[in-house]
Amino acid sequence: MECGNYKTNYSKDMHLFRIPRVKLRIFIIVLLLFLLPLFTSNYVIGLATLCAIASIGAIGLNILTGFTGQISVGVGAFLAIGGYTSAILTSILGWSFWISLPLAGLVTAIVGGIFGIPSLRLKGLYLAIATLAAQFIVLWAIGRFSGLTGGGEGMVLQRPSIGSFTFSSQTSYYYLCLVILLLVTIYTLNLFRAKTGRAFLAVHHRDVAAQIMGIHLLKYKVVAFALSSFIVGIGGALLAHYTMIVTVELYSIDVSIQYLAMILVGGLGSVFGSILGAIFITLLPVALGYMIEFLTVYMPNAYSLLNSFQEFVFGLVIILFLIFEPGGLIHIWNNIKTYLRLWPFSY
């Protein structure tokens, strides 16, 4: 029982791990994630890498949309900026991945900050449409400057390397993504214990009231856009070096919607929720693929339905979550935890 955990001052209440036991639990989960390549095939590791990259992007989006309450439908474009920046720096200029990765984040942050300026006047629906417009304009611009970006053919990237070691195998790239995901997670968790993050939350709840309390709205909204875009840009660069190709089609509006679905299904305003949601939405089409494969025994033409079936279920999942569990997966998880903690004497 956890009835002995008294907090006697505020700083204790703000600890990252408020209960010592949680530290052990998180450590075990992280350890298992690091040991994953020992038990599984390359295919599973590939999926896990995609989940990790999606988690980074989802955390980035959640900072903006879930925590600060500024709806962005343009994540796809920001992923594209991250990916293309890294592609241009490494493939054309020949710079090292380790310099281009933070620069990709920085460039995305600058563009994100610029698109964040209108957020001072625009709210809710209007902001969503402004970011949607940003998505189309950025992608058009990328396709247009074909001298730099390869136009419709896209660009080819290399896997990063240190000295003579190249992250070319699935496992090594998985470790790279996992470490960056860990850093991003710890950073974001700490962000919301500090002043900036608290200001974001205040802006989310009521921006007019936040302004009255002395929070500089323009500054914090632009910072939220920039921070979120930085992380999304890092995710975009990692994704680009993983798939080793960038084309405009990879970053369509559907990608933006997928990322929105991740934070919605996972839980708005929750870091662990973003990770859960990213895993869920990344694995959903894979699971449906297996289901269709199973169905081909009875319906030989089931494969032709795969794409539309995935689309259908994706929409259905979003709607069901919105209606029945608006708190997302993290809420379900917390409910289970509360139930188990006092089980079998639930009151």
């Binding site: 709806i71 919607i257 994706f314 929409g315 259905l316 979003i318 709607i319």
Partner: peptide
């Protein structure tokens, strides 16, 4: 917004 997006996908 997400409900209508989900609806459009469905």
């Amino acid at each position: 917004i997400m409900a209508t997006i989900g609806l459009s996908s469905l």
